[in-house]
Design a binder for these strands. Sequence first.
DNA 1: GCTTGACTTGGAGCACACTCCAAGTTCTAC
DNA 2: GTAGAACTTGGAGTGTGCTCCAAGTCAAGC
Lengths: 141, 141
Amino acid sequence: MADGSTLPEQNREPALTIAQVAERTGLSPDTLRYYERAGLIDRVGRTTGNQRRYAAADLAWLEFLLRLRETGMSITDMQHFARLRADGAATVPDRLAMLRAHRSSLAERIRSLRRNATALDAKIDHYEQLLTEQPETDTPA
Amino acid sequence: MADGSTLPEQNREPALTIAQVAERTGLSPDTLRYYERAGLIDRVGRTTGNQRRYAAADLAWLEFLLRLRETGMSITDMQHFARLRADGAATVPDRLAMLRAHRSSLAERIRSLRRNATALDAKIDHYEQLLTEQPETDTPA
DNA sequence: GCTTGACTTGGAGCACACTCCAAGTTCTAC
DNA sequence: GTAGAACTTGGAGTGTGCTCCAAGTCAAGC
């Protein structure tokens, strides 16, 4: 086969190598393999030579996982979600419940960060005053 | 001495035990000792029998550290800040610079979380539609 | 067809931030 | 003054999420 990608059958999809997916997602190839081993992503397609080739759907799922990760979901919870997804449409209510719970904990997280940001601003103001009012004076912090 | 706390000299300050500080801060006694060993907090006062007694100022500093931690500052960076603080008023500009940098990365963090929250909302809407439009139908997720 | 670089696997190792442990000491209440 | 809880230390162990490694296989260009 002089055909660039040697997938067993069908599809003219992108079929990216692991290095290409790594570059697009910011994950390392090792992390991508780790996610697959951990069951976060289904076993992706392979070439006849057993090398991974990622389809567009794999990319989309990875991007969703990254969103969950960036918003603080643990690998364990993502594994749970992935398992539900693999179990098909019947688990939609469970998945919805998980997402709603995660969404609300994210809202709380954001509120907490904003409170802390305000307190940090006050601390910064304090330091700025130390600096402008009495530069080079040995007052305790 | 029938005097509850047996600090070497002076002060009628609160002087809390490690267990009391643990309860107030939510940190474990082990974590408090770890923070002290790590140089995040100055060596706190001891009784004649070598047990820790925390003063109000120790509490205030701990609360500030917790704010830094909750907003994602690493132990290493907090060690750096603590060292600057121990070095006195001359390091105020450095400390201010650290706080400003941290404040701005926090702002970016919050923006990113809000973007992700919006994307999650869209995903949740999608799942809700799956549920209301075609309940009990085997459509792929 | 051969080289060079990318890929494969299972498993070991790592950084971070704690958390636990053992053996001994101190504190508090009675 | 004594029992029992709380404390002390140094050091080992843990969970999470990767990250690296060795030894071998595959892919792409010349």
